[in-house]
Write a protein that binds this DNA or RNA. Structure first.
Lengths: 172, 172
DNA sequence: TGTCATCAATAGACAGGTCAAACCTTTTGC
DNA sequence: GCAAAAGGTTTGACCTGTCTATTGATGACA
């Protein structure tokens, strides 16, 4: 049996967070001693372990009850799948922003400034602290997730088609 | 010359948002009439257009001054690039969560109690052809990239706290 | 001059999740 | 038996960006 602070320490979270979960109806103490202290047993530890796991998936606290209280596996799988799609939607949102940035940087006439050349881009990335490997990984990730945007970007650097093919081929 | 509400309507944002940008020192009215009304000219409209563009890239308001006030293009490109990487980091974070969900949905018993024990997990990894050193490296990698997830995993194996500390300490 | 729209300035709400702090009571340890 | 530590409850801060609400003054129009 653990006190609230012991429980919190076990999971490297704060006492307040445990209280927050209790307020949300997610994690009730097994019982209270006469002095009002909360006591948590194995079941509660197990339950918090699940909560931490689901939270690490990014599942909102407000949806945890769907995964903890209902034991309908199909329902749970559905909830997780929906959350998965929600994550995907966020990713796509970020990708759109990345794409917009790349297009913007590749078309500096929007800023009435100079064209970004390959050398200039390389220097920019180097100044940002990226190693050659970092750049290679960056291109591979870009190619994998947004091949069209990557192509547009590479063309904007006035790189030869041959070199573009080489860079895009890194992902294979 | 536009009033604040006209300006806001032009960009489909609220008047309050324009005031917010002013409070942040990003967009000052060209002048004020005797009654205190704000008046915005072409320069201010153009400036707000840029603000809206950068915001659509997801650049935080707190960083906009780096892109608006400084006309060092290298500096601006660097800011945008750093933001690009910040977006990439967020994407990777979401991808890790997605991956965890997939793995979990494939093996939900991992979160059930007393199913996968340390011995069984060790056997699974051994069956998969991993040596002791491989497992050690696996844990170190896991701890380095996803300490919280690693902790959840180790606890799921019902390993003693002491042993967990040892394993997590391998990364030091 | 009354009425309605619009402006100014300020304050607070909201979202989500966690933590900190304040203040009071109980237990613990020397 | 006193002080530290840890428990209780409750409230607020943090983050970011935008919105609503409030109150009071001004402008335009009939």
């Amino acid at each position: 049996m653990l006190t609230i602070s012991q429980l919190a320490k076990t999971f490297s979270i704060s006492r307040t967070t445990v209280l927050y979960y209790e307020r949300e109806g997610l994690l009730l103490p097994k019982n209270r001693s006469d002095n009002g202290y909360r006591w948590y047993g194995d079941l509660e530890v197990e339950r918090l372990r699940k909560i931490m796991a689901y939270r690490s998936f990014g599942v909102p606290v407000a949806q945890l009850y769907l995964l903890l209280d209902r034991h309908d596996e199909v329902e749970q799988q559905t909830v997780l799948l929906e959350h998965f799609h929600a994550l995907e939607a966020k990713v796509q949102e970020l990708r759109v922003q990345q794409k917009a940035i790349v297009q913007f940087m590749g078309q500096p006439e929007l800023l009435d400034e100079n064209v970004v050349t390959k050398d200039r881009w390389t220097q920019i990335m180097r100044d940002a602290g990226l190693s050659d490997d970092d750049m290679r990984n960056w291109h591979m990730q870009f190619e994998k997730s947004e091949p069209q945007g990557h192509l547009v970007f590479l063309r904007s650097l006035n790189i030869s088609e041959e070199e573009i093919e080489v860079i895009r081929g890194w992902s294979d």
